[in-house]
Design a protein around this nucleic acid. Structure first.
Length: 572
RNA sequence: CGGGGCGUAGCGCAGCCUGGUAGCGCACACGGUUCGGGACCGUGGAGUCGAAGGUUCAAAUCCUUUCGCCCCGACCA
């Protein structure tokens, strides 16, 4: 491609609406443009990258035996009615009506549609297993689209759906997808962790998230520094500490004038926050409950909901707390005054005495012991962090921020049972097909790649997904320079290398800045000095220094670098 | 949905408080000088001041309503 013919509108200044690095660089580098909140156009360069990521995904899905299909984005209500998701999906479902008043939605995910596709024609165990996937735009009316391509309302997603005769076979499909995902994430050049996660609303039994490590990640994850354990903090298990062996004296009521927060109370009483307990009032499926965690710990709503068997959980409002006749906010505690349900975190169940609210303004209790002074359902309720031990091996955990790039599930018969997607087994017994689903946010991966591969000058694309492998630039003017660059451009192109030839009549500085911003992995500079010796400069985007390479060797040198770094040469 | 911020030329911004001729930088066009890390000089084109309503002799500026965008939170297969 000649730069003078290319539509690559780079920006010198940072658009004011962009904050996240990938968002800024996608806009500045001329990859995408915003059309509305969470809605983007892919410009030529952006589409090239997106297409490359999608190509890697397709190759690996095909290698794993999956077959690509294409489903409608516009879907009649009836399918989601069958699964119950027309109601349960909530506001995130983008709904619309046609001229006759018929109700439709834009597909946020396609379990129902694919299940319908399969149930229509699959009747026998002989037709299974099947693994079908789609790569297409999906739509979600996100409460808050943000960070450019990281959270959009319209985004490109790959979803694969497996159909098996048994849970065991489904598990095999799941494992094969897990392996395919490893290959995909590695090939795209991402630093990631596979973590245990909340299968949540999917109704699945087993799931794992592929979390791309990034400073700006929305998700908090922990990974063991010694073993393979890694989990989303939503589910990462905490361990019970050692039991306190000393005798704890009876609890005492003490004055704590106007000290409400853990911080204030602990400081006032001269104790560490870890010697206090925090009473949080939450509403679980409509009922107000008291949730107790140690003062220095954070309650984890996913865990609390699970412990309570609640499908809906949120913090109680002050009004609800008063209505439930609990003590005054800031001085709440489990002893005296509160007669409702109490759940306590494992860490409090160590026989130790803790400071708690006295359910009376300006007063707290000291030496409150769980099991002695009050009763509670004990469960793992808190969010683990850096200081915690690995639940698997006991070594230290380390926390990371991550961006969910992929999520794989064993769905079981959640959808197939509801939608009567059945088959006949060898014994002529009708059974629901056992499903799995496997998603990858393709457009999101483009952004996460930039989050991991950029510097102060711009993007540093991994070879495998770069919009072009190399940019050829002249530094200085003269027919000899242009001629040599032109020859290189032709030679490289013929060799199958993807080349951007910067033939603009610009000063070298301008071309270099754009090259760095756009992030071509390699740059060839044809300059007067080098050319006098029959050489050109070859510089990797990630390296500081360029090397001089004889003209006649450049093409092969670049071709092998492209190959070695995971790029693909186009076959002639 | 709650909190905060912002809408003025393609991009980044000033002007608004204290009403009166719409401005700066970049980008763009033309001429000239430059040419290895976003050059310089000159000339020029380009704006329904997000939209609607109101106050006023007069509104980018004051008032009301509304739409859009960003950030934090809530939410989030």
């Amino acid at each position: 491609m000649r730069y003078t013919h290319a539509f690559v509108p780079t920006l010198k200044e940072v658009p004011k609406d962009a904050v996240t690095p990938s968002h800024v660089l996608l806009l500045r580098g001329g990859f995408v443009r915003m059309v509305g909140a969470g809605i983007y156009e892919m410009l030529p360069l952006g589409l090239r990258v997106l297409t490359k990521v999608a190509a890697i995904v397709r190759e690996e899905m095909d290698r794993a035996g999956a077959q690509e299909v294409l489903m409608p984005a516009l879907l009649p209500k009836e399918y989601f009615d069958e699964s119950g998701r027309w109601d349960s999906f909530g506001d995130t479902l983008l709904r619309l009506k046609d001229r006759k008043g018929g109700e439709y939605h834009l597909g946020p995910t396609h379990e129902e549609i694919i299940t319908d596709m399969v149930r229509r024609d699959v009747k026998s165990y002989r037709q299974l297993p099947q693994n079908l996937y789609q790569v297409q735009m999906k739509f979600r009316d996100e409460a808050r689209p943000r960070a450019g391509l990281l959270r959009c309302r319209e985004f490109m997603m790959k979803d694969a759906y497996s159909f098996d005769v048994s849970e065991e076979k489904a598990r095999q499909s799941y494992e094969s997808m897990r392996e395919a995902y490893h290959r995909i994430f590695r090939r795209v050049g991402l630093d990631y962790r596979v973590v245990a996660a909340d299968a949540g609303a999917m109704g699945g039994s087993t799931s794992a998230e592929f979390q791309v490590l990034a400073q700006n990640g929305e998700d908090a994850i922990v990974a063991c520094t010694a073993c393979e354990y890694a989990a989303n903090v939503e589910v990462a298990a905490s361990l019970r500490g050692a039991r306190v062996t000393v005798e704890v004296p009876a609890f005492e009521r003490v004055q704590t004038p106007a000290r409400k927060t853990i911080e204030e109370v602990a400081t006032f009483l001269g104790k560490p926050a870890s010697a206090t307990m925090k009473a949080l009032m939450m509403v679980a499926d409509g009922a107000v409950v008291m949730v107790l965690v140690r003062g220095d710990h954070d309650a984890n709503e996913v865990k609390v909901a699970k412990a309570l068997g609640a499908s809906d959980l949120r913090m109680a409002t002050d009004v609800e707390i008063r209505a439930a006749s609990a003590g005054p906010v800031g001085f709440l505690g489990p002893v005296g005054g509160w007669t409702g349900k109490v759940v306590a975190d494992l860490a409090l169940d160590d026989g130790g005495g803790y400071v708690s609210g006295a359910n009376e303004v300006d007063h707290h209790l000291t030496n409150v012991v769980l099991g002695r002074d009050f009763q509670a359902t004990v469960a793992d309720l808190r969010t683990v962090g850096d200081a915690d031990p690995c639940p698997s091996c006991g070594a230290a955990l380390k926390s990371y921020r991550g961006i969910e790039g992929g999520h794989i599930f064993v769905l079981g018969t959640h959808y197939s049972a509801k939608m009567r997607c059945h088959f006949l087994d060898e014994q002529n017994v009708e059974k629901p097909i056992v499903m799995g689903c496997y998603g990858i946010g393709v457009s999101r991966l483009v952004a996460t790649t930039i989050e991991q591969h950029h510097d102060g000058d711009g993007i540093r694309w991994p070879m495998s997904v770069a919009p072009y492998h190399v940019v050829v630039t002249t530094a200085g003017k003269g027919d000899d320079l242009d001629g040599a660059a032109e020859t290189l451009y032709r030679g490289l192109t013929e060799r199958g290398v993807e080349v951007m030839y910067d033939d603009r009549d610009e000063r070298p500085g301008v071309k270099f800045k754009d090259a760095d911003l756009i992030g071509f992995p390699l740059r060839i500079t044809v300059g007067k000095r080098g050319l006098a010796e029959g050489k050109v400069e070859l510089k990797a985007r990630a390296e500081k220094e360029a090397v001089l390479v004889p003209l006649e060797e450049v093409v092969e040198r670049v071709a092998s670098m492209v190959r070695d770094q995971g790029g693909r040469l186009r076959s002639a």
